[in-house]
Design a protein around this nucleic acid. Structure first.
Lengths: 332, 332
DNA sequence: TTTCCGGGTTCCACGGAAACG
DNA sequence: CCGTTTCCGTGGAACCCGGAA
């Protein structure tokens, strides 16, 4: 008990058993008599003992921990995603530790730490990473799931087809007679995740005989404020604009609020659609028509893929498509 | 290199030095010649080696990791809080790992895991915890900061005076001639954090000669939807309601949207104030008057308190008040 | 129950090179 | 000029806590 830390040996001594019995009491409860086990746990609680996961993982070669590097925790869609992961780890008897990773450099550091912790698997978001990240993960043979993406996976991935979602949204607007349909995308650190929407937009617009000339970029860091700015830019480029496909519900909400200030009727003059089914989408007026991405399922599937891999199951599908829905509300 | 894992010894062999030199190259770069060190790191990168933090923390008795048990990641106020923590850990050369802890039972498990990981400090939210959590932390002598709270701390705490903020908001409404001022509070898992606003409301109302009879409870899990419900309940109780103090901007936004639907003028007939300065507060119309809690500073201070404790500094103040501001916008 | 082992760190001893008398 | 002191980079041994046989 030097340096004040309680060890398994201390617990063993206090409970009058051998250290091995204490270890068994935790890892293989059925190997230890009920009464003995209860006494051990009681003594441990008394002493404030918690098994040292570091020592355990070192000795056993497994940590029962899965790590996630999450780029942003600012919206409710990601929140549902994290809840899905949490559900799946609890079910499998694992623990989930999260690290904040804004941008590929922070992600690289987070992955480095998680690998250092010898987690049994890592969940990333998107498929845009630092080159070191990929090489480190492959060299250490750490199971990785790239979530919210279905292409170019280094290992496994789970998400939905954003190109198809883009096309579906274009078709929805067109089916309501809209012809001057704009697409807003983010630029900056997360650009790649959004850029693939552009060719899908162009292709679908052309297929419908429309001109795909209204692609507008906004900064990802701008939050709500980007909505008004993007709308302003689009209206200057195309006063006859009649539909806007936004990259998130946040942008869409900002755009709708701006329309309110300018006296532009939504959806009368301009239809606005969001993306992500954030909480605000159902609560504001008009309600936002949006893409609903099954965030919870993405999180759950990401964890399950790692757990299955660890259990030696046939690597299953390396890619899981969780699909999406279009939620129709008043804004489009 | 059995079981495919690269160890420090493997790197040492490949670089033609002893394992000790590799260890030094990572932990005390200045002890190793520049050329040697560069060669070692190069070989390590080549092999995909990352020092095993578990082994390191076991041997060194310190992990350079701080853990956070976060109850919710669904709003932008918490997001800024996490960014503040991230900033402070980076500055101090620590790592931050987060675990989701919705409610005191999940928090207990998260704390158990973090203690098992032998993190050097733990950040919690609020001062409402499972009794096991407190006893475990005190018995293991793990530094703890309870953030977003200034009272009843088990160890250290950082936050602002919510009672004073409540009183200030009551005074603001009253100074605009409002007399039928309502207070909405959450009930459920986080209730304690909000309940202390009630006596502050009552006290300030009485001091102003007003009747503090309009306290309304809502479920914390309801998100935006709780706003309309609470407003409805209040209007039934008091048709002459003229001001509402909401527990979050989300509730406030929901209430304002509901007023819009009902044709109630905000702030003409009813003034609405929020709490937390979420992104939506500045972007919606009317903009929300709200309490701005310095979320970033709370996160930063929480980490700094732990780091200072670890560095053996005089325990500084056990409580840090980060203050708050009232942001005046159009809604009140 | 005992013993050994996992991967790394602390502490200290060692040895070569530069600086000094 | 050579022997000695000092400095600094490097390596050896014991040990951290818990798991498996």
């Amino acid at each position: 008990m030097r340096n004040g830390r309680i060890t398994m040996g201390d617990v063993a001594r206090a409970a009058g058993v051998s250290p091995m019995t204490v270890s068994n009491a935790y890892r293989y409860p059925e190997r230890v008599q009920d009464a003995t086990r209860r006494r051990i746990l009681e003594v441990a609680a008394d002493l404030g003992y918690v098994p040292n996961l570091a020592a355990g993982s070192l000795a056993a070669g497994q940590s029962r921990v899965i790590g996630g590097a999450i780029p942003s925790m600012r919206n409710s869609s990601f929140y549902r995603y994290i809840l899905g992961m949490q559900h799946a780890v609890a079910e499998a008897g694992y623990k989930l530790v999260l690290m904040l990773a804004e941008g590929i450099e922070q992600e690289r550091q987070a992955v480095q730490t998680l690998v250092g912790l010898r987690v049994e698997g890592i969940v990333l978001v998107g498929n845009e990473h630092h080159s070191d990240t990929a090489s480190l993960l492959s060299k250490t043979a750490t199971p990785v799931v790239e979530s919210w993406a279905l292409e170019d996976a280094m290992d496994m991935c789970v998400g939905y087809d954003t190109a198809e979602a883009t096309r579906a949204m274009v078709r929805l607007h067109a089916s309501h007679g809209r012809r001057r349909i704009a697409l807003i995308v983010y630029e900056g650190a997360v650009s790649r995740r959004f850029k693939m929407r552009i060719p899908a937009y162009e292709q679908q617009m052309r297929a419908l005989g429309l001109t795909p000339d209204l692609v507008q970029h906004v900064q990802e860091t701008d939050g709500f404020g980007a909505g008004p700015r993007a709308l302003d830019a689009l209206l200057q480029r195309a006063p006859d604009l009649d539909a806007v496909i936004c990259p998130t519900d946040i942008i869409a909400a900002g755009a709708v609020f701006e329309c309110g200030r300018r006296g532009i009727d939504v959806p009368g003059r301009i239809a606005v659609s969001g993306w992500g089914d954030y909480e605000i989408a159902s609560e504001m007026t008009p309600g936002l028509t949006t893409i609903q991405p099954n965030a919870w399922e993405i999180g759950e599937a990401a964890i399950r893929m790692i757990v299955q891999r660890q259990r030696g199951r046939p690597p299953a599908e390396p890619a899981t498509d969780t699909g999406f829905d279009i939620l129709r509300r008043a804004s489009a």
